[in-house]
Write a protein that binds this DNA or RNA. Sequence first.
RNA 1: GUGGGUAUAGCUCAGCUGGUAGAGCGUCGCGUUGUGGUCGCGAAUGUCGCGGGUUCGAGUCCCGUUACUCACCCCA
Length: 426
Amino acid sequence: MAQLQAPKGVPEYFPGRSSAFLAVRDALNAPARKAGYGYVELPMFEDTALYVRGVGESTDVVSKEMYTFEDRGGRSLSLRPEGTAGVMRLVIEHSLDRGQLPVKLWYAGAFFRAERPQHGRYRQLQQVGLEAIGSDDPALDAEVISLADEGFRSLGLKQFTLQLTSLGCAECRPPYRELLQAFLANLELDEATRERAAVNPLRVLDDKRESVQSQLAGVPYMVNHLCADCQTHYDDVRTALRLLKVEWTESPSLVRGLDYYTRTAFEFTHHLLGAQSGIGGGGRYDGLMSSLGGQELSGIGWGLGTDRTLLACEAEGLDPGAGALVDVFAVPMGEEAKAVLIALSGELRASGIRTDLAYGNRGLKGAMKAADRSGAPYVLIVGEQEVADGTVVVKNMSAGTQESVAWESVQSLLAAHLQKDEGNHS
RNA sequence: GUGGGUAUAGCUCAGCUGGUAGAGCGUCGCGUUGUGGUCGCGAAUGUCGCGGGUUCGAGUCCCGUUACUCACCCCA
């Protein structure tokens, strides 16, 4: 029988890298929490119709990449390919939009897309996301964008760019779309691209192939055909972004893969990630709520790729979440000593001091080696002598010094040492 | 989904034109009394991704398959 393995395209995180994953996830949602966003825990699967209506039937995400299945009651369900539609459904279902607006929410977790896996492109992908619903204030667009920017910066990332554009609205997009399609009709394109031009002409703009790009000179861009309201909105977004000290690049050819975006659209791309360079993206959506049966409310949000952000950190030589998993490592010599340290480690943990113990009755040398590997700054040693005295040897591993203290003072001594070390680092 | 590359010890990889496997790192042990990190010595570990085929003989050639990976596509 073949060796069991994880499903294709599913990244797993375990000690060695999992602490970095957690640190990235926390860093990406921290800015939102500082701006009044509340947490939502969404279902991993939803009625398939939610995504068909919300994300758009013609999008690749829905038409080709969704994990859809029938449950035992004959309902068609789909593993969530993205988060925004689910948040909208939750907001409508629980009437969150009946209170004060905007409703500000964030979430984090796994999403599923049946794509061909690649480095940074997974079938189970992790995202941190946020939505601000019920206000079309351009200052809110700027806040949302700056929170993503801040998340990346707080990790120390530098090699990324914020790309920004406006996709227009129901008013100005249709005429622009016709203009664009007329332009594309005159180009020499292969069958697949021609089809794309018919379904989603904007997509053709960010085609990476030279054969296509070379033909796009003089192509009309949406930003140059915005209606008065959209133009004002876009100008105000940029003014607010300047106030927030966020830098961006104007990207008129930026396209989003989900149908619901209107007006402000943005994407964060990292320069060291190859083809899968998008580490986050989002935008405003005007018609989404109402198309899902809710009020006519505009919203704006983003999704940031946790997996890709971690890869970006690694590409820049950053190591988020680095450091030992424990503060203290206990080394017993003999059965009685072990009993003492088992009890003591329990007390230390309860007081908030991260503590591990040398298991397996190894020799002192081996146990010290394990203590060293653990990275714990302090090691507790108890042998016959200490059992008799009622003391513990507390060793400072980096200094190599050690002191003997009574059992009952160990906790307060360690707490004091650790606090002092903490102070020295910051 | 389309096209290319790779697949050898836990990790990184070497194995020339086919003759039944190696290094470094890591792990474990030892360097005598209760102390890690350095150094020295020693040990364990692989059905050479998986399945077929060619051959007296395949890690080495051929086919298939799976996974990873690169580009397109898509997007986080």
